[in-house]
Amino acid sequence: MKEPVQMPLQASACEIEKITLPQIVSIKQASEIMNLPPYYLRRVCRENPDLAFQSGVKWYINLGKLAAYYNNKTEQSE
């Protein structure tokens, strides 16, 4: 019986890029996290389509973009 061939381990010359995936949550989850009413978040999503997307009747929000939206909104009001 032949033994399996062992390939030597080599360090890769290329670097692996770090990928950060967006945190996507439902309106209900965003409502609980942000302590905001769901109807208000749905309105914000309709007015700012880059914050969220709709699948059927359900909205999904990018939490990072929503936080940036509120940070910019509070800076403008000051």
Rank of each mutant, 00 (worst) to 15 (best):
L36F: 12
C45M: 05
R43A: 07
E32N: 12
S55G: 08
V57I: 12
E15F: 09
E75P: 04
I61G: 01
E78G: 14
S55K: 15
V57M: 13
V25M: 05
L21V: 06
V5H: 09
L41M: 04
K65D: 02
A52T: 03
I16D: 05
C14N: 12
P22W: 01
V44E: 02
A13I: 09
A13W: 07
Y70P: 01
I33W: 03
P4V: 07
P49I: 05
I61V: 14
L51T: 01
T74G: 03
A11I: 13
I16Q: 11
K18H: 12
E47L: 03
A52E: 05
P8M: 06
V5P: 09
I19L: 13
R43D: 09
Y70E: 07
Y40A: 09
E47A: 03
S12Q: 14
Q29V: 07
Y70D: 07
S12F: 10
P8E: 11
I61E: 04
K73E: 08
Q6C: 05
M7A: 09
Y69H: 11
T74N: 11
I33C: 06
N62R: 05
Y60M: 06
S55F: 07
E3I: 08
Q54W: 02
P4G: 01
K18M: 11
Q6E: 13
A67R: 14
Q6S: 08
K58P: 05
L9I: 11
